[in-house]
Amino acid sequence: MNRLAKKYLRPSQIPTKACHGCGIGMIENWLLQAIDEMGLKQDDVIFGTGIGCVGRQTFATWGGDNFGATHGRALAVATGLKLAQPDKKYLIVVGDGDAASIGTSHLIHAARRNLGVTVICEDNMGYESTGGQFSPTTPAGYVTNSSPYGMVEPGFDPCDVVKAAGATFVAETTATQWHQTVKIVKKALANDGFSFVHVRFPCNENFGAYALGTRDTLKNLEWIYEHTQGRKADGTDADFTWETGIKHDASNSRPEFSRLMRDMNARVKADMKAKQK
């Protein structure tokens, strides 16, 4: 086990339940690096997840306090929890189903409120724990178990959605950008407000097998790399390119939700005292 896993994770929960070559562990490893470089301790961070591959694989691996909400509701739980425990850092690690589909309303409204949490949306471009159906982030035309003739629906970019909703930090990376991801997550954690980091990673067992035609872990990670760079190994252009990097940085530009609530309470208390006099 690497040094950061020893420092921050629960030995009993490692190895995780992830399939071989799954990117979830990679990204979690980078989260640990960001946490470590920021000098945060286990007790400082509350780790929240949802359901699906990302929820199941990351839940209870974090050595500090964890919660695994029902599907899509991690941010709803975090909304209440943040009020009770305002001084903690929150890492809400969810999948594309949680963030971009079943829990989108909570995502939008957490962003609108500028809830002080960092959402890491680990996106494997489909519902892989249920066997590989398409999700709102599956690229158009790709074959999945529920789009056997190619994904006909247009997808959407959750980064655009949360930015429009008022998130104060929005960024996108992929599973082949380790240094960039660590840097971005550090910035996201430093924002006292709603931060959203969208990270695409490969699924070998389902998305790889059906959409890309292979379970070869190397080929699937290579596919992510090609679409991050916009160029294939042979020098030709990829069919599309993900725009990665920081998309919106207004860190600490407006007050955080629980801070607003506490300020209002202080104001109400002061008014009551003034009236009593």
Binding site: C22, M26, N29
Partner: peptide
């Protein structure tokens, strides 16, 4: 149940840390 990786030629390592960064199962230090 997997045929795991092992360090066959430690003497060749140049300390680039790519393996550490990419390992999805927290194995490598």
């Amino acid at each position: 149940g997997w045929f795991p990786m092992y360090t066959a030629h430690e003497e060749n390592c140049i300390g680039c840390m790519l393996c550490y960064q990419i390992c999805p199962d927290f194995c490598i230090d």
